[in-house]
């Protein structure tokens, strides 16, 4: 039997990872909730953001500071991608959107591969191996920061969605597209803003991940499959569901890894994912499907 403090440490570690999963998933779920599409380019955008953060750090900008510039930059890129590529190319057909975002992900991922090859890179920051001592467990400092920032960003998003005009417009479009058009909401603009927010969340997640993680052109893929799981788990389109789902998935991964070995840690997630999709596609929190 495992000692309780090892178990507790594993749970805490899982929560730290889970916070980043939650951040990646929030972007995905928001786009799904509003546009009713799954953005298959999510993982590729995360890889691109990690490369951006990587090169910022090579240029001497700390990832935590690069975050301030990269988030708006990716917001703009996401806004433009939806407005100029995804929306016109898919002619309003959901199956087309599926393929267009898949096409975008192929392009982004392979352009990264062409430009930077498949080498795995990482950065060296002075706090990379620093840790926080809780008395019974050590937590790596970068992951504690990631946890804290992810929580702050999610809270800000929550407040923004409920107390600003744009946030209310986003929720209105998510609930009733035609009704929103009738009261004068610019739906195309809201779509693009939502997409932009999703991309900005990824830029933030990328900056948080970089100090303790590596980057290569396919790094986002692993995260995005996890994010899909989180989104399905928490209910497609539900922001609180994505947060709680992200944290839970982080813990599940950490515990599966502890009991069955590292390589099967992710397997637990996918099995859970398939079971969830088959049995309860509306998610644990039963979001509007």
């Amino acid at each position: 039997m495992l000692a309780p403090d090892i178990l507790l440490a594993a749970v805490l570690n899982g929560l730290m990872t889970g916070a980043v999963y939650a951040l990646v998933a929030v972007g995905l779920t928001l786009v799904y909730g509003v546009l009713h599409i799954i953005n298959f380019a999510h993982g590729a955008i995360l890889s691109a953001a990690m490369f951006a953060a990587y090169f910022a750090s090579l240029a001497g900008v700390d990832p935590y500071i690069a975050l301030i510039g990269l988030a708006p930059l990716f917001f703009a890129a996401g806004y433009a991608a939806q407005r100029l590529i995804i929306s016109p190319a898919s002619h309003g057909d959901d199956q087309n959107v599926l393929l267009v975002t898949l096409g975008l992900s192929i392009v982004i991922e392979n352009v990264l591969l062409t430009a930077f090859h498949s080498d795995t890179r990482s950065i060296d920051v002075p706090y990379g191996f620093a840790s926080v001592d809780l008395g019974f467990a050590f937590l790596p400092l970068p992951r504690v920061v990631a946890f804290a920032v992810a929580c702050v960003v999610s809270a800000a998003l929550w407040i923004g969605l409920h107390h600003t005009d744009t946030g209310k417009a986003i929720r209105a479009v998510a609930k009733e597209r035609y009704g929103a058009t009738l009261v004068g909401i610019d739906v195309a603009h809201v779509y693009a803003v939502t997409f932009g927010i999703g991309a900005a969340c990824l830029a933030i997640a990328a900056c948080l991940l970089l100090p303790s993680y590596y980057v290569n052109p396919r790094v986002g893929e692993a995260y995005v499959l996890v994010a899909f799981t989180v989104v399905v788990f928490g209910g497609m389109g539900s922001v609180p569901g994505a947060l709680i789902g992200g944290l839970m998935i982080g813990v599940i991964e950490s515990l599966t890894g502890l009991f069955f070995g590292e390589s099967l840690g992710q397997l637990g997630i996918f099995v859970l994912f398939i079971v969830m999709l088959l049995l309860r596609p509306t998610g644990l929190f039963g979001a509007r499907a």
Partner: peptide
């Protein structure tokens, strides 16, 4: 590496558009 796949992706988007 990846140049052909990147082009396939562009092609896919163009075909759908």
């Amino acid at each position: 590496p990846g140049a052909d796949m990147a082009l396939f992706g562009v092609f896919l988007v163009l075909i759908i558009a």
